[in-house]
């Protein structure tokens, strides 16, 4: 009992220390709207020390490669009316509850993203688009002419198991990864294929495994994901 109290106290102290750790911010971005509004939860520069504990304690997904990841139009819209992208929250485990026939997510506990007005959304999106991956995402990595979306759907849903962690439609798929049913609106194809090929390039400890997918699989799954959410347009 005593040991567990000491452990809890130590863990609490570490958490408090980490929570108040100053976020590293690019000197160029200092004082910007992005720094003021986003840096307390999101990494805007590549973390100098990527650790499992950083993933465990971070309050929001990393944005240091946002300009390679997102479509600006989607950012402007989403920032004004945020939806839940990660059904399990920033780190699904923190909201998982044991249960029958399976564990569930305490959706009420999942973090809500604050909304901003149209002017701020445009300004933030402009600044986010300046944040690049430092050459990880290369233009032209995705080749739409060779991507068969129908075969990509089969790979995503059946053969490669992507659906185990990601939803391809609301309520269809796993809960530990971000939903992908609006991936075609939200994400850039070159980023999707690069991340899927080797997620650990972006964070060595992130819980999406490297799936050693073949190049044709990478292309066709990306083609399928890019088709998701387009029907809303």
């Amino acid at each position: 009992m005593k040991a567990s109290l000491i452990f809890a106290a130590s863990a609490g102290a570490v958490l408090v220390a980490l929570a108040f750790r100053p976020t590293a911010v690019d000197a160029q971005a200092a004082g910007s709207e992005l720094t003021r509004q986003c840096a307390s939860c999101h990494a805007l520069t590549k973390p100098a020390e990527a650790t499992v504990d950083r993933l465990w304690t971070r309050k929001g997904p990393d944005l240091w490669y946002a300009g390679d990841k997102f479509n600006k139009e989607w950012l402007v819209t989403w920032l004004q009316k945020p939806t839940v992208i990660r059904p399990g929250g920033v780190l699904w485990f923190k909201h998982a509850k044991p249960g029958e026939p399976r564990d569930t997510i305490d959706t009420a506990a999942v973090e809500k993203h604050p909304a901003v007005d149209a002017e701020a959304a445009t300004k933030l999106a402009d600044e986010l688009m300046q944040l690049k991956s430092g050459g990880l995402v290369k233009e032209g990595a995705f080749k739409p002419e060779s991507a068969n979306a129908a075969m990509g759907k089969l790979a995503f849903s059946k053969l490669r198991g992507c659906i185990a962690c990601h939803q391809s439609a609301a309520g269809t798929g796993g809960l530990s990864g971000p939903e992908l049913y609006d991936a075609g609106q939200r994400l850039r194809a070159d980023y999707v294929i690069t991340y899927m090929k080797d997620p650990q390039q972006f964070d060595p400890h992130v819980w999406m495994p490297t799936l050693t997918l073949s190049e044709p699989d990478l292309q066709r799954i990306t083609g399928y994901l890019m088709s998701l959410g387009k029907e809303k347009e």
Binding site: W56, R102, A164, S176
Partner: peptide, 27 residues
């Protein structure tokens, strides 16, 4: 145990019983 929570429990369950949050549609 900490690593299991992050990487394995999503499918194998927070109680290690194979009933993770992602098992909803698994064949």
């Amino acid at each position: 145990a900490h690593l299991y929570d992050i990487y394995c429990a999503q499918c194998h369950g927070v109680q290690r019983n194979g009933k993770g949050v992602n098992t909803v549609g698994l064949s």
